[in-house]
């Protein structure tokens, strides 16, 4: 069982999407190793899923779990803000936990 379920909606034709994917992977590997499930959804391939989730902007990250749902929009360029958006304000505390 993982504690985080994250969806990232991207458009393979856009540069911001590539950046977002990289930025997110770096953050997840660093702060949540083995503790997450990441689903990358390309809207060109799966427009139905974009419709269903009412996605307008690309890239859009949805934190499906834990509840409540949170949406982050953009290339996820600022790590601290992404972490805050995912609901982790006290990063130092989290890192120490991992070290122990």
């Amino acid at each position: 069982m993982t504690n985080y379920w994250i969806q990232l909606f991207i458009n393979r034709n856009s540069t911001t999407s590539v950046g977002a994917e990289e930025n997110l992977n770096a953050i997840l590997k660093k702060y949540f190793p083995g503790d997450y499930q990441l689903e990358i959804i390309d809207i060109q391939e799966h427009p139905d899923k974009a419709e269903e989730a009412c996605i307008l902007a690309i890239p859009t990250l949805i934190r499906k779990w834990p509840q409540p749902e949170v949406r982050l929009i953009g290339a996820l360029t600022v790590q601290t803000r992404v972490l805050a958006g995912l609901g982790i304000a006290n990063v130092d505390h989290l890192l120490k936990q991992k070290e122990n």
Partner: peptide
């Protein structure tokens, strides 16, 4: 909804 960095509305256009 929190905005962090650049984005576009291509999902809307695709839909």
């Amino acid at each position: 909804v929190i905005t962090i960095g650049e984005f576009d509305l291509s999902a809307f256009r695709v839909r």
